[in-house]
Each structure stands twice: as C-alpha cells, then as structure tokens.
C-alpha cells in the first residue's frame, strides 16, 4: 500500500459532497441545454448497468449462480418488486443454486 486509505476516503467524501451539494445550492433555474439534460438523464442507468454485468458473474463461487441471480433479479424487478426484495431474492438464488451446484463436502 503506497497510498493512504484515509486520504482515499477523504477524496471519496469531498468529491461526492461537491457533486450532491453544488447543483442544490447553485442551480436555481432549469437546465436548458438539451444535450446535457439528456446526457445526465441516461448516465445513472448506463453506469449501473455497466457495473452490474459481467461483474455479477465474478463475485459468486460459481458464475452459473451469478447468472441465475441476474436473470431472476431482472424478472422480478420487471414485475415491480421493491429494491429490498430484488436484492434479497438475488441472494437467495445464489445460496440455493450453490447448495445444488456445489454440495457441502
């Protein structure tokens, strides 16, 4: 470790705070530029989608259980399940599928 963890945390906190507070305090009018407006509209979905796949295949013991969690998560989120239930269902799918795929020794 050549970098200090507390400096990392300070940067994380400071940059995040600036992102959150600057528009709220400075922008009192509507953003008019259509490109910037559209760009900002798409950013949240794009960044979360990019972070989800293929990363979800790499965090479980078997990529198969990660893929199953992705499919089940997509389906129940499409059916309007809450954030909490989607999150929990993905965990349950991984747990159950790994019991079957990788039986206890």
């Amino acid at each position: 470790m050549t970098h200090n963890t507390y400096v990392y945390l300070l940067i994380m906190a400071a940059v995040t705070y600036a992102i959150r507070v600057l528009p709220l305090t400075l922008i009192r009018r509507e953003i008019k530029n259509r490109f910037i407006q559209s760009f900002l509209y798409y950013v949240p979905y794009v960044t979360l989608a990019v972070m989800t796949f293929p990363a979800i295949l790499g965090v479980t013991q078997s990529p198969v259980s990660g893929a199953l969690a992705l499919v089940v998560g997509l389906i129940i989120a499409l059916r309007g399940a809450s954030l909490f239930s989607v999150s929990l269902a993905c965990c349950a799918v991984v747990f159950i599928s790994e019991l079957l795929l990788l039986p206890p020794v």
């Binding site: 965090v59 990660g66 998560g73 989607v86 269902a89 993905c90």
Partner: peptide
C-alpha cells in the same frame, strides 16, 4: 450479489 440486485431494482 445483494448490491447488484439493488442496481437491477
């Protein structure tokens, strides 16, 4: 996978 589930939601 809880976090990825949240992203999906």
């Amino acid at each position: 996978v809880a976090l990825y589930g949240m992203f999906l939601a």
